[in-house]
């Protein structure tokens, strides 16, 4: 019984962290068909922003949930204005340019923070379930992810800004004809996407030892999750994160963590081979 509970929590946690990792990338990709390969580095910077803020005496939750998203969002804004705005509509070029950016950020972080591991301790203590110890922080991540998905849905569905964003997503030229500047909307979307990446990096920061190259660990997973999810933003994100999270956890528990990772990757290959347009290219068509 206890073991079932622990496994269930671990699976939920795996799915939640995949959602968290991929949300920023999914927003940018779903909106503007831009693959931001510097996404992992945005997360890394979110982590550093949190740690720096905490070391300066800021409350850890304020640092994670407010400061880090703002800082990374602003960095994203600068990046969008300087580089990405010139490359809209050129998928491969944006991928290459953002790959270059990711290297630049790694270099900058190495120069500023040094090539050493930094970290903060988790602010929520663990607790015991029967004979097993559960990390309380995992629940925090699950809650944040659920709130995040609900939040994105509410904004896109319920607000005027979300309506304009969805309109631009479908037909940028129509939105422009109705008087909304796609340039502005893309800028705002990129800010939001970057902020989400920053948030993800910040929330995960207490769990990992942060080094300037930490981003590399996330980008591949996020990239795979988003592409496998397909065109619909929320349905795609949740469905692919769920399938990958569950599969990797099953193999992790059955065999070993390495096999779990490999199983996730093999699942991605099989999934893309059978559904080249992603999960939502076939199911949940037209959903958000």
């Amino acid at each position: 019984m206890d073991l079932t509970f622990v496994i269930l929590v671990e699976m939920l946690y795996a799915v939640a962290s995949l959602v968290l990792i991929s949300a920023g990338l999914a927003v940018v990709f779903g909106m503007m068909k831009v693959i931001n390969l510097a996404h992992g580095e945005f997360m890394m910077m979110g982590g550093y922003a949190t740690i720096t803020a905490v070391n300066l005496g800021v409350n850890v939750f304020v640092a994670m949930l407010v400061i880090a998203p703002l800082v990374v969002g602003l960095i994203g804004l600068v990046v969008e204005r300087l580089v990405i705005r010139h490359l809209y509509g050129r998928l491969v070029d944006t991928m290459l340019a953002t790959w270059g950016l990711s290297l630049v950020f790694i270099g900058l972080a190495t120069m500023i923070f040094g090539n050493t591991t930094t970290g903060i301790s988790t602010p929520i203590p663990g607790f015991a379930v029967g004979g097993y110890q559960i990390n309380g922080y995992n629940f925090f991540i699950i809650v944040v992810s659920i709130l995040l998905v609900i939040g994105i849905y509410a904004v896109l569905r319920g607000t005027r800004a979300g309506l304009i964003a969805r309109g631009t997503m479908q037909r940028a030229d129509m939105a422009a004809a109705l008087g909304y500047s796609p340039d502005r909307i893309y800028m705002a979307t990129f800010f939001c996407g970057s902020a989400l990446s920053g948030l993800a990096g910040a929330v995960l920061a207490p769990l990992v030892g942060l080094v300037p190259t930490s981003g590399g660990a996330y980008i591949a997973k996020a990239f795979i999750t988003v592409i496998a999810g397909g065109p619909s933003l929320i349905a795609g994100l949740v469905s692919s994160a769920t399938s990958f999270g569950v599969i990797s956890q099953i193999f992790t528990f059955a065999i070993s963590p390495v096999i779990g990772e490999v199983a996730l990757l093999i699942a991605a290959v099989v999934l893309l081979r059978t559904m080249p347009q992603g999960i939502t290219g076939r199911f949940f068509k037209g959903k958000l």
Partner: peptide, 8 residues
């Protein structure tokens, strides 16, 4: 840093 220049 080396990486920075490659990226740039």
């Amino acid at each position: 840093d080396n990486t920075l220049i490659t990226g740039l």
